[in-house]
Design a protein around this nucleic acid. Structure first.
Lengths: 127, 127
DNA sequence: TTCTTCATGTAAATAGTTACATGATTCT
DNA sequence: AGAATCATGTAACTATTTACATGAAGAA
């Protein structure tokens, strides 16, 4: 299976215990989204791909009429995750509009440019 | 004109002086790419859009048989850039595979996890 | 009863990269 | 002569978000 951007995020979270797609999304949003975001549109298809490759195994777990499918990592999945953990690829990308603005702030009067800088500092502190 | 991700990057660079698409790409790669990358596939079409909106003006500047089109920012372009500089939108996105790896490093023996951490520190220093 | 949360999923749109085609000029 | 750089441009691919459809369960 050719891994995508979301492969290791999903597989890694499942290595901490079985979860549904909905759960995965919730945990992502509370934890790794600060440096590795993922949307439903990525997560649900990825779970199917991972299951097809037998890196994870799904099991129906609906209570009553509500459907729910819980996925757990397989031995093979664990091996693959381990391989990735030992890898050296380090894709790092930043997209920060406030830094872009700051870069061009020379077009502004000095006090306004300093205002931008102060706002950015506060913004980072609030993060 | 509906601004895209690359609009302000290109317009901002042209506000520092007239440049060709090739030049813009080169300057981007030496400066703002650390927090706002842009590829030819974004830059060239954007220059056309910006010219159509009259935020910039292009002029043929080829020497001999080599074609070259140099763009300069217009008064309208400067107003638009100024408006954006005064805006408050702060899109910030980070994608850092080494942090993702570190997050899941608990699956590794302690010494290997610490090795990952050391590698990451060196990686950041080398940036 | 109504609102929120649980839950799955995808179509369509937007964003962005990669790789190539083309050809001139300049440097070694 | 050959390599590197200047220069423009786009097609195809990959990545990602957004918004919606659908419906059950639980909480107020």
């Amino acid at each position: 299976m050719e891994p995508t951007a979301v492969t290791w995020a999903v597989l890694g979270l499942l290595s901490h215990g079985p979860r549904s797609g909905y759960d995965v999304k919730r945990v992502v949003d509370r934890t790794i989204r600060h440096f590795w975001a993922a949307s439903y549109g990525q997560i649900y298809p990825e779970l199917k791909r991972l299951e097809a490759a037998r890196w994870i195994a799904g099991q129906e777990a609906g209570r009553g009429g509500r459907s729910r499918r819980v996925y757990g990592i397989t031995a093979r999945g664990r091996r693959e995750l381990d391989g990735w953990l030992h890898g050296f690829e380090t894709r790092i990308e930043l997209r920060d509009e406030s830094l872009l603005r700051l870069f061009f702030a020379d077009a502004l009067p000095v006090d306004e440019a300093l205002g931008l800088l102060a706002a950015r500092r506060e913004g980072y502190c609030a993060m």
